[in-house]
């Protein structure tokens, strides 16, 4: 079975928010709800400056702290390594939001269920259905695919760029950043 992951190249990312809006529409989120949030960094002093935009979303950690602490088992890791939430089990206790060091979960206003990026998992397809953040990225900064397939685009890209999780080995994150 595949083990899905993503590479995000912040050298290319221009912080244009397209991924956030595309994701909202694909996952029918509210206008104020987002699975992707952004950190904007600026360093140096004029005129020697540099800037960086870093999109943050669920890292689908293999050792997901949110999955460990979820009392009802609403949060589970499926066989493809994608961390999902069963909206029918979630009681909205928000323990997962406390446990997640990346702050990438959000409370869905109307239901109180705590949701997050699902890698656009499609149950009918039994796989990720063309993640909209990758499909829409205008700077070609995102690569998605099966980490276990050595010649998949994402595996090749991660190896070629020595991409690393944003917080090192804090968790076994499956989004790898090139910075």
């Amino acid at each position: 079975m595949a083990r899905y992951g993503m590479m995000i190249d912040t050298r290319k990312c221009v912080g244009c928010f397209a991924c956030r809006v595309a994701c909202q529409m694909k996952n029918t989120l509210g206008p104020k709800e987002g699975f992707v949030h952004f950190e904007f960094l600026e360093s140096g002093t004029y005129p020697d400056v540099s800037s960086e935009a870093i999109p943050m979303q669920c890292m689908h950690c293999a050792d997901a702290p949110c999955e460990k602490v979820c009392p009802t088992g609403a949060t589970y890791i499926n066989e493809a390594g994608v961390v999902l939430v069963d909206a029918n089990k979630c009681i909205g206790c928000k323990y997962c939001m406390v446990a997640c060091p990346y702050s990438v979960r959000m409370i869905e206003e109307i239901s109180g269920v705590v949701e997050k990026c699902r890698f656009c998992w499609d149950d009918e397809m039994g796989g990720p259905n063309n993640p909209s953040c990758v499909a829409t990225c205008i700077a070609d900064a995102r690569v998605f695919g099966d980490l276990d397939d050595p010649n998949s685009d994402v595996a090749v890209a991660i190896a070629a760029n020595d991409a690393q999780p944003i917080a090192g080995d804090l968790t076994e994150a499956k989004i790898f950043y090139v910075r």
Binding site: Q24, M25, K26, N27, T28, L29, G30, P31, K32
Partner: peptide, 8 residues
């Protein structure tokens, strides 16, 4: 419930 646009 409905299409992507109509949440909120």
């Amino acid at each position: 419930h409905r299409a992507g646009l109509q949440h909120g």
